[in-house]
Structures are given as C-alpha cells and as structure tokens.
Lab assay of single mutants.
Amino acid sequence: TETYKYDDKREAEKAAEEFRRRGITVTVEERNGTWVLESK
C-alpha cells in the first residue's frame, strides 16, 4: 500500500484517475483536512 497526500480534493481525484487508468485500485478519503490517496 502506498499513500499520497494532497491538499486539494481535485488534485487527489485527478491522481486517482491516473492510477485507475493503469489498472491500480486506489481509494481517496479526507483525513484531518488532507486528502489521502491510497493505492492497494
């Protein structure tokens, strides 16, 4: 599991889209005002 942090929800979702395009499952969730993207 890799974790990436973003200040902006849009950025996180854009990154998530890129991962999914490569066939990687990711989750995006907000933690304490930071958007956390996790690849499984």
Rank of each mutant, 00 (worst) to 15 (best):
E11I: 06
N32E: 09
E18A: 11
R20P: 00
D7K: 15
T25E: 13
I24F: 15
E2W: 14
G23T: 01
A15S: 04
E13D: 10
R21V: 06
W35Q: 01
I24C: 14
T1L: 13
A16P: 00
V36W: 12
T34A: 13
Y4P: 05
R20H: 05
A16H: 02
G23W: 02
R20M: 07
R10M: 13
R31A: 05
E11W: 04
R21P: 00
R10K: 11
D8Q: 06
T27H: 09
D8M: 05
T3G: 09
R10E: 14
R21S: 08
V36Q: 04
T34P: 01
T25Q: 13
Y4G: 05
T34K: 15
W35I: 02
W35V: 01
T25L: 14
D8R: 05
T27E: 06
T34H: 14
T34C: 14
D8F: 05
A12E: 00
E2S: 12
K40E: 10
S39N: 09
V28W: 03
E2C: 15
W35M: 01
R31E: 06
T1E: 09
T34S: 13
A12H: 00
R31Q: 08
T34Y: 15
W35H: 01
F19A: 03
A16L: 05
A15E: 03
L37E: 00
T34G: 13
E29P: 00
V36M: 05
E18V: 07
E17R: 08
R22G: 04
E13N: 05
S39F: 15
A12C: 07
K5F: 15
K5Y: 15
K40T: 13
W35F: 07
K5N: 09
T25R: 10
R10S: 11
A12I: 02
T3D: 06
K5H: 14
R22Y: 06
Y6W: 05
D7S: 14
T25G: 06
E29R: 11
E38M: 14
V36F: 13
G33N: 04
D7M: 14
K9A: 07
Y6K: 01
T3V: 13
K14Q: 10
D8K: 06
R31G: 03
K40I: 13
R31H: 09
A12D: 00
A15M: 09
D8P: 01
T3A: 09
K5D: 04
G23H: 03
R10V: 12
E38K: 11
R20D: 03
T25M: 14
A16V: 06
V28Y: 03
K40R: 10
D7W: 12
A15I: 05
K9W: 10
T1Y: 14
I24S: 04
K14M: 11
L37H: 01
K5T: 15
I24T: 04
R22Q: 09
T27A: 07
G23K: 02
E17W: 07
E13I: 09
D7A: 15
L37G: 01
V26C: 09
T1F: 14
K40M: 11
E13K: 04
A16M: 07
R22A: 07
T34F: 15
S39Q: 12
A16E: 03
Y4L: 10
T34N: 09
D7H: 13
V28S: 01
T3S: 10
E30S: 07
R31T: 05
R31I: 13
A16S: 03
V26F: 08
E29G: 05
Y4Q: 07
D7Y: 14
T25P: 10
L37N: 01
E17L: 09
E2P: 11
E11K: 09
A15W: 06
E18T: 06
G23R: 02
K40V: 13
E18F: 09
K14Y: 07
V26R: 01
S39M: 15
S39A: 15
K14V: 08
F19K: 03
G23N: 03
E29F: 14
I24K: 07
E18G: 08
R21L: 09
V26T: 04
E17F: 07
Y4V: 08
K5M: 13
T25C: 14
V28R: 00
E11F: 04
R21G: 05
F19L: 12
E38H: 11
T25N: 13
E2M: 14
E2F: 15
K14H: 08
K40C: 12
L37M: 04
K40P: 11
R31M: 08
T1V: 12
E30K: 08
W35T: 01
D7P: 10
K14R: 11
E13T: 05
Y6C: 03
L37A: 02
S39Y: 15
A16D: 00
E29W: 11
W35A: 01
E11Q: 10
E18Y: 11
V26I: 06
E38W: 11
V26M: 08
K40D: 10
Y6M: 02
D7L: 14
L37C: 04
R22K: 10
A15N: 03
E38P: 01
L37Q: 01
E17P: 00
I24E: 05
Y4A: 06
R20Y: 06
L37K: 00
T25Y: 15
R21D: 04
A15Y: 04
R21A: 09
Y6D: 00
R31N: 06
R10G: 11
N32M: 05
R21H: 05
R10N: 11
K14G: 04
D7R: 14
Y4T: 07
E38A: 10
D8I: 05
N32G: 08
E18N: 08
A15G: 03
R22H: 07
D7C: 14
E17V: 07
A12M: 04
T34E: 12
Y6V: 01
T27P: 00
A16C: 05
R20V: 04
V28D: 00
N32C: 10
V26W: 02
T1R: 10
W35G: 00
R20S: 06
R31F: 08
R22I: 06
T25D: 13
E17G: 05
E2T: 14
A12V: 03
T1Q: 11
D8A: 05
E18L: 09
F19S: 02
D7T: 15
K40A: 12
K5I: 15
E13H: 06
E30P: 04
G23V: 00
W35K: 00
T3W: 12
E11V: 07
E29L: 13
E30I: 07
K9P: 10
R22D: 03
T34M: 15
V36P: 00
T25A: 13
V28Q: 01
E11G: 05
K9Q: 10
V26N: 00
E17H: 06
L37P: 00
W35E: 00
A12S: 02
E29S: 12
N32T: 03
T25S: 12
E29Q: 11
V36E: 04
K9R: 12
D8G: 05
V26E: 00
E2H: 14
R31K: 09
F19W: 09
E38C: 13
V26S: 02
E29A: 10
R21K: 11
E17D: 10
E30C: 14
V36T: 06
E29D: 05
E2A: 13
E2L: 14
R22P: 01
K9S: 05
L37F: 03
T34Q: 15
E2Y: 11
E13L: 12
K40Q: 12
R31V: 11
K40G: 11
D8N: 14
V28C: 06
K40N: 10
E29H: 12
S39V: 15
Y6N: 00
T3R: 12
I24M: 12
E30Q: 09
R21I: 08
E38N: 10
T3M: 11
F19M: 11
F19R: 03
K14I: 10
T27Y: 10
L37T: 03
N32I: 02
K9I: 09
R10L: 12
T27K: 08
R20L: 08
A12R: 00
R22M: 09
T3Q: 11
W35N: 01
G33M: 03
E13A: 05
E2N: 13
K14W: 07
V36Y: 14
R31L: 08
A15R: 05
E18S: 08
K14A: 12
L37W: 01
R20Q: 06
A15K: 08
K14P: 00
E13V: 07
R10D: 13
G33K: 03
T34D: 05
K5L: 13
Y4C: 12
R10C: 14
E11H: 07
I24G: 05
N32L: 05
T27G: 03
K40L: 13
E2G: 11
N32D: 12
Y4I: 09
